[in-house]
Design a protein around this nucleic acid. Structure first.
Lengths: 112, 112
DNA sequence: CAAATATACATAAGAATATTATGTATATGC
DNA sequence: GCATATACATAATATTCTTATGTATATTTG
């Protein structure tokens, strides 16, 4: 687990990237996928995720579809065309940021 | 210039790294050095930097020394032993974080 | 089969960190 | 002389996250 301040500002980028690869995902699924993919190093809390998803929706970046699973509900999120563009931009910006920070912090590139 | 959310949480790491390389720096100098080193991509605002420096001081991570330059003052910051350890830890943590994010966002390593 | 854990949504209070604005003052370049 | 640069600082506001709380169903395990 990283110190919480590190992860700040990366949540939207992570969510958009996952949605750009999966077409539709629901909130809880996103938290679990990130946990899995990062070997528990990044754990998205629900208190952070749900408000972010709601903001993405009101910004027209994602649309939602509610599905009944037995007696429970799931809210699936899908990128809009605007969201797809946004996802690429965010990831590119982050990649650029990483390079800038690597240079600034004199971090060696890790091969293999 | 990156979107402001991206830079959040990296300020302390940047300051500690610069101080670990320069022995002593003053606030304004830090803002200019970062601007220079990142070709204007990261611009630390004074409203963010000064409170952070004060926090580092009250945490025992840095000590200060006020120097008169003509009629103006400069406040030089120096890492304490604790601060030196902290700087290494912060940079290492960020390096690890970068690798995790590269994997998560499927960002290719940029050689050269 | 009861209890604990996992799934699944949501919001609210509070903390942390940054932005923007403002304030003060000296120094330098045109 | 005026604009810009140097150099500190704080306050109001905004943003984003943590932690806590709430509701409810489903599954696993002792």
């Amino acid at each position: 687990m990283y110190s919480s301040e590190l992860i700040k500002g990366t949540l939207k980028t992570i969510v958009l990237k996952l949605l750009s690869e999966n077409k539709e995902m629901y909130g809880y699924e996103i938290t679990q996928r990130v946990k899995e993919l990062t070997s528990n190093k990044i754990q998205i809390t629900e208190g952070a995720l749900y408000p972010t998803l709601h903001a993405l929706e009101s910004d027209g970046v994602v649309t939602t579809q509610i599905v009944n699973i037995g007696k429970r509900i799931r809210k699936y999120y899908t990128l809009t065309p605007k969201g797809k563009i946004n996802a690429v931009e965010k990831v590119n910006e982050f990649a650029d940021f990483i390079n800038t920070m690597k240079f600034l912090l004199d971090i060696k590139i890790q091969l293999a």
